[in-house]
Nucleic acid binder design. Structure first.
Lengths: 265, 265
DNA sequence: TAGTGGTCTAGACCACTTC
DNA sequence: AAGTGGTCTAGACCACTAA
């Protein structure tokens, strides 16, 4: 339908850029509905009188902008906006972990209680602290730490990867150091720490957004162009002792972080 | 040097993926120093016995991972890690804005005082509140608001875009509504609000990471694959009145956000 | 001038899905 | 079987940089 390229524009506007712009316009103006089908590469190649590779470049650009979804063997589609989950200090509230104290301490927690809102796969190991972990926990590199690694899944999709570190002395003999599945989610572990006289009272959360590594792309099933948010969390007791250091990588498109605070003096 | 492809690996490992992996390995293992030169596309095409386009794909992938920098007419280089700026509640501290009260009120501030740590370009306009802005400021869509748009630059590079909105009644006749350059940075505007009996005491900052739009890519001079962090800030007085709503887009690679807080009950 | 990145072509083959 | 996305080739031309 006469979409053939008219190079009336400046010489620097490349064909693939022009095509990408046109498609983006179609999407943003709502001509094509969410999850709606877009023209195939070969069709656009004919219409614009360019090669398929050039159309491919245009789509690659849109894919990097997360406007488009490619379904091999099917077609190109407008990417659906995924619902965001709002996360903030409230999710660490005592009320969410105090109630799990008994089960956590007895080690008889119902796995479903942990997995009902989403599942976790975890592995617990005792390691020697790396330089970074040691610094965060205020111990020496090489000192023993317990590491709990998890991939958190929600509605069938992995949403984030968490690595929690504890001083070995703080958690020895507790469910935190127990690799049984379904045990010792964050809620439980804070209760355990509290029962040991190491009740968490404050924390600092650091956030940083970046492009994912290949490994993260696989684990989190990320689309191209989809960034990750890396966070570091240090959890302190009232006396300032650091009882947990957690590093996580989130699929950025699934979260909004929200931090309320009083303006400092 | 015998880097020619050996397809001993699984059939699904595409040539361009193999090349990308090999290059990533070279970079991560430190064989090539930061900002060091990587093999040219044509050279790799010869060594791996593939076409230049295939090598190009490999480099495109690495570029998306922000491992590599392409300098047209020069070569491919290992991307340098840029220094991060740590931002958090402290940057809103009263001590940073109270002292500018006098200048802000009198309108005779030294432009250098604002620009010494980085420059800002700003434009101030009076507009009708959009749906989103109205909701945030707890007013009606169409009500008058003052909008201050800025691009903040640091060491010659744009780092973030900010759009601040105020109720027109709150700032009428103050320097906030004065478009003179160098005036009414955030520090000044909070002082102005305070002098009007609308002292900011608390705020909420929401963060979200995503791929940039074309426009943002240009304004922030972002490399391919470099994500942005979008933030929304609502600023409240002691009585809960919302006196500022600010939307910004940051080049993700330049910031770490850090939020300390007490664990809620 | 030689080398580099960046783009483009006109074909080709594969794996996949849909009919 | 036909159409789709995904990859690949073996050339080509351009704009740019450096010697």
């Amino acid at each position: 339908m006469g979409r053939a390229m008219r190079c009336t524009r400046s010489v620097t506007t490349r064909p693939y850029e022009q095509i990408a712009e046109d498609l983006a316009e179609m999407i943003k103006s709502g001509q094509v509905p969410e999850d709606g089908r877009l023209p195939s590469t070969r069709q656009l190649a004919r219409e614009y009188e360019v090669s398929v590779e050039t159309v491919n470049r245009a789509y690659a650009k849109l894919q990097a902008q997360q406007l488009v979804e490619r379904r091999p063997g099917v077609g190109m589609f407008v990417r659906e906006a995924k619902p965001l989950r709002r996360v903030g200090p409230h999710r660490y509230a005592r009320s969410t972990w105090r109630k799990t104290t008994v089960e956590a301490l007895s080690g008889h927690g119902d796995p479903d209680a942990v997995t009902q809102r989403g599942s976790q796969r975890q592995s617990v190991t005792e390691e020697e602290a790396s330089e970074a972990v040691a610094t965060a926990l205020r111990i020496r590199a090489g000192d023993p730490v317990v590491r709990r690694a998890r991939v958190v899944t929600r509605e069938g999709h992995p949403t984030h990867i968490v690595d929690s570190y504890y001083r070995a002395e703080d958690v020895a003999g507790t469910p935190i150091a127990d690799p049984r599945p379904g045990m010792a989610g964050r809620e439980g572990s804070y209760a355990v720490l509290a029962s040991r006289g190491l009740e968490p009272t404050e924390m600092t959360e650091d956030l940083y957004a970046r492009a994912p590594t290949e490994d993260e792309k696989k684990k989190l099933k990320l689309g191209p162009g989809e960034p990750v948010v890396e966070t570091w969390r240090t959890v302190r007791t009232e006396t300032g002792r650091i009882v947990e250091y957690a590093h996580s990588v989130h699929a950025a498109s699934r979260f909004i972080w929200s931090f309320p605070f009083k303006i400092p003096d």
